[in-house]
Amino acid sequence: MSSFYDPRYAPAGDVGAALMVIDSRLKAVYAGKSETGPEQRLLTDQFSASLGPREADDLLDGACTLIYMFMTWLRKAHEDHGKDVIEYVVPNLVATMRTMRRSVLPEAIPTMAGLVIAAGTGLSPSLWRKQYGEWTSEEMNPLEATAFLLAEHINRITGDRDYATRLIANALSSADED
């Protein structure tokens, strides 16, 4: 019996745009820019302002799809080593988010942990989240941070700073071919 939260019932959203945001953040961090500069903030503000309600929803769903895809990859990688992805990824994610006090409010951390746990157990993070109502503006930075931290974790595991981006880009290319 399939769950209402099965990913096949979830909208994929704009995975390409969500990936672009995360890849941009990864490149900035790897370049040694822990703070977003004025030029990057201006571009981000312009991009955000250009989104209508539909595009904003698609970007949110795209970020949730990224989280699902990253957690699926991490689950398989951990299972190959006889480890539980929830046990090894979630505590690290939560601990890191707790240090990100300016970007991630403490009250958003349980929701982000829930998204990751949902994805790690094969459920759609976006459908899981929707049961609690609409997204709040306070959840936008934590959502981005969650996708970013998962991508960075994958890159660190593989020793390749572009692996997570390539993983998704290859999956999108394969989907376009089908």
Rank of each mutant, 00 (worst) to 15 (best):
1 M>F: 14
1 M>W: 12
1 M>H: 10
2 S>T: 14
3 S>H: 05
4 F>D: 11
6 D>L: 04
6 D>E: 11
7 P>Q: 03
8 R>E: 08
8 R>L: 06
8 R>G: 03
9 Y>C: 02
11 P>D: 14
12 A>L: 12
13 G>T: 00
17 A>D: 10
19 L>N: 11
20 M>Y: 07
24 S>P: 00
26 L>R: 10
26 L>G: 09
27 K>H: 07
27 K>G: 05
28 A>M: 12
29 V>P: 00
31 A>H: 10
31 A>V: 05
31 A>F: 04
32 G>P: 15
32 G>C: 12
33 K>Q: 15
33 K>T: 11
33 K>Y: 12
34 S>I: 09
34 S>Q: 09
35 E>I: 08
35 E>D: 13
39 E>G: 08
42 L>K: 13
43 L>V: 05
44 T>V: 03
48 S>M: 10
50 S>A: 11
51 L>T: 01
54 R>G: 00
55 E>P: 00
58 D>G: 00
63 A>I: 09
64 C>Q: 03
66 L>P: 02
68 Y>F: 12
68 Y>S: 06
69 M>Y: 05
69 M>L: 13
69 M>E: 14
69 M>A: 15
70 F>C: 05
70 F>E: 03
70 F>W: 04
71 M>L: 13
71 M>A: 13
71 M>H: 04
72 T>G: 04
73 W>K: 09
74 L>G: 09
75 R>M: 13
76 K>W: 04
77 A>K: 08
79 E>I: 05
82 G>C: 06
82 G>P: 02
82 G>T: 02
83 K>T: 12
83 K>R: 15
85 V>E: 05
86 I>Y: 01
87 E>S: 05
87 E>F: 02
90 V>T: 12
91 P>M: 04
93 L>C: 07
94 V>R: 11
95 A>V: 02
96 T>S: 11
97 M>I: 03
97 M>G: 04
100 M>L: 08
101 R>P: 01
101 R>S: 15
102 R>F: 11
103 S>V: 06
103 S>E: 13
105 L>A: 11
105 L>K: 07
110 P>K: 09
110 P>Q: 05
111 T>I: 13
113 A>G: 05
114 G>P: 01
115 L>I: 14
115 L>Y: 15
117 I>R: 15
117 I>E: 14
120 G>R: 06
120 G>Q: 08
121 T>V: 12
121 T>Y: 03
122 G>H: 03
124 S>R: 04
124 S>L: 04
125 P>I: 08
126 S>Q: 08
127 L>I: 15
130 K>E: 13
131 Q>A: 13
132 Y>T: 02
133 G>E: 04
135 W>H: 05
136 T>M: 06
137 S>L: 13
138 E>V: 11
138 E>G: 13
139 E>V: 03
139 E>I: 00
140 M>S: 10
143 L>W: 00
145 A>V: 08
147 A>K: 02
149 L>E: 09
150 L>D: 02
151 A>D: 07
151 A>E: 03
151 A>M: 08
152 E>I: 03
154 I>R: 01
157 I>T: 03
158 T>F: 02
160 D>K: 10
161 R>C: 06
164 A>P: 05
164 A>K: 01
165 T>Q: 07
167 L>R: 04
169 A>C: 04
169 A>H: 04
170 N>P: 01
172 L>C: 07
173 S>M: 14
174 S>R: 14
174 S>E: 14
175 A>Y: 06
177 E>K: 10
